[in-house]
Amino acid sequence: MRFNRSGAPRRLKLAAIAGLLFLHLPLLLIFLYAFTTEEKSYQFPPPGYTLKWFSVAWERQDIWDAFMLSLKIACIATGAAIVLGTLAAAAVARTRFFGREVLSLLIILPIALPGVVTGIALRSAFDIASIPFSFWTIVLGHATFCVVVVYNNAVARLRRTSSSLLEASLDLGANSFQTFRHVLLPNLATALLAGGMLAFALSFDEVIVTTFTAGQQETLPIWMLSELVRPRQRPVTNVVAVFVVIITFLPILMAYYFTRGSETIAGQGK
């Protein structure tokens, strides 16, 4: 048999499709359970369907509070990550300096190490420095692992941006800031946006580090975790779960949209 370019062997195709179904059917199941009339158990198939839980969830102030907190944290952590990630990417992509490899390793560290290590390390550091747990300790934890996402996107884009573009701008009399504003930033914008979107999704649903860096604050994932450990109103949890899936899927789809087809190198070929 030749490895022809047209059709895949049937067994390979089936295995691939089965794998993707394994990845996505469980999520669809949650959508189904958000409409169930059964309150006390996870009975399948659901005995009946209702939209009631969506309005019940809508009325719950604790869910709204948790949601708003998560939203605020995700926005601020993403902002910090965009600034720090871009700065680090600019330093690593444009120049060679002592310890450059170490820096790129350091930035990846927060997601390469298990979340529980990052969480407890930050917690014990806050303890030692006598910093009380607050909104800002959560933000600090989130920004730490969000930097790498923005950094990765920005470094990839900077490597593909031809340096002659920047030189041309400088030759034509623009200063560094004008060059950044009018040449580099437009080139980098979609990569930063994509990185920011992913960082937002990551932060919005982070729970492992958050349990260590949060005091009394309850983010939406922490609210969900407490519902999973001690269920109160299961269908409401299902509705929130559906909501979390949608609100994290949207930025990821946008990130994909912003970076697709960016293999072409800006400033070359024309």
Binding site: P26, F44, D205
Partner: peptide, 13 residues
């Protein structure tokens, strides 16, 4: 990229 907790929860169901 997303829904870590929701994906654990799905298996509880």
């Amino acid at each position: 990229w997303s829904s870590y907790l929701v994906r654990v929860y799905a298996w509880k169901l």
